[in-house]
């Protein structure tokens, strides 16, 4: 009986959230920008899923690009290599297709892990407050004191060049954002009556956090996080371009460009001689990020309480 009333309590407290969600979904469907974004993301998802068919793997590890010789000079598109080859003769088409999987992988992994850290630290920090909170917030302050890419650059140099280093560095620079947002939400929800009620009837802290606070606090953060995937991939691409990527043979868009870094400026006679080495992988990065950002911008407008209602 008691748990029943608590359930209805929870349901009541969630119902505005659910109504809000429905309203949001409706508006997302009505916004042309978000539909465009959605379509682009779907397109990339299809490429990622169909990668083994579009570009059959040659090596045991499909993320290791096959290469057709060792010549340094990139080759322009030809029937054999429809997007041409990079310096070192890696097939650009293969790299772009499997690089799509890498992009999703990097995006989801970085956002997922930083979100998890954010949820744990943010809710503990917000719920208990005090010295733990103080220390955590100073931590986030320090990381906020650096532009993300530059701190990530320093970290990758420290960890050594590898995909894992890139992922770790990106997680380290992005967890504070989620931690702060979650903390803020927890602080808000903590004040509400039904959390007071839950405390009064003797729920454990763990139960209060997981059952009562997080379901209410997590919603804006989840949206924000999923939309950060684009910017994570953009930063990862920049690191790759700076030579701090996964390594020469790894199928990754930024890496493809980085492989040909000595050739992207073309020759003195023809600056566009090796256009394919950067224009094509760059287009993949751009479209992928654009998809997420279109969706993100539509969401931001819809969720902005000050301009919600037309």
């Amino acid at each position: 009986m008691k748990s029943n009333s608590r359930w209805s309590e929870l349901k009541k407290s969630m119902s505005p959230t659910i109504a809000e969600l429905k309203f949001t979904v409706k508006r997302i469907r009505e916004s042309p920008l978000s539909i465009m974004g959605m379509a682009i993301i779907m397109f990339f998802a299809a490429i990622a899923i169909l990668a083994p068919i579009l570009a059959p793997p040659v090596n045991e590890n499909p993320y290791i690009m096959p290469h057709d010789g060792w010549k340094r000079v990139p080759k322009p598109p030809s029937p054999k290599h429809i997007f041409g080859t990079t310096s070192g003769q890696y097939d650009v088409f293969y790299g772009c297709i499997w690089g799509t999987r890498t992009a999703f992988y990097v995006g989801f992994e970085v956002v997922g892990i930083s979100l998890l850290i954010g949820i744990v630290i943010g809710s503990l920090s917000g719920y208990y407050g005090g010295i733990v909170d103080e220390i955590m917030m100073r931590f986030t302050d320090i990381i906020y004191a650096f532009p993300g890419l530059i701190l990530a650059m320093a970290l990758v140099v420290a960890f050594g060049r590898s995909l894992e280093s890139v992922l770790l560095a990106l997680v380290l620079v992005s967890w504070p954002t989620y931690t702060r947002v979650i903390r803020g939400e927890v602080l808000k929800v903590k004040q509400t009556d039904y959390v007071e009620v839950a405390k009064a009837i003797g729920c454990s802290d763990f139960r209060i956090i997981t059952r009562h606070i997080l379901p209410n606090a997590i919603y804006p953060v989840l949206i924000m996080a999923s939309l950060n995937i684009g910017s994570v991939v953009l930063t990862a691409a920049a690191l790759s371009f700076l030579g701090l990527g996964a390594g020469e043979s790894f199928a990754d868009w930024g890496q493809l460009i980085s492989n040909s870094r000595d050739y992207i400026m073309g020759t003195a006679a023809n600056p566009l001689a090796y256009w394919h080495t950067w224009l094509i992988p760059g287009l993949f990065i751009f479209m992928f990020v654009l998809g997420w950002n279109l969706l993100g911008d539509a969401f931001r407008d819809i969720l902005d309480p000050t301009i919600r209602r037309r």
């Binding site: 371009f241 460009i257 950067w278 224009l279 760059g282 990065i285 751009f286 654009l290 279109l294 911008d297």
Partner: peptide, 14 residues
Amino acid sequence: IIGWSLPTFWSALI
């Protein structure tokens, strides 16, 4: 949004 999504090095190269 397009500007925001452009990889810096790519727009520079273009």
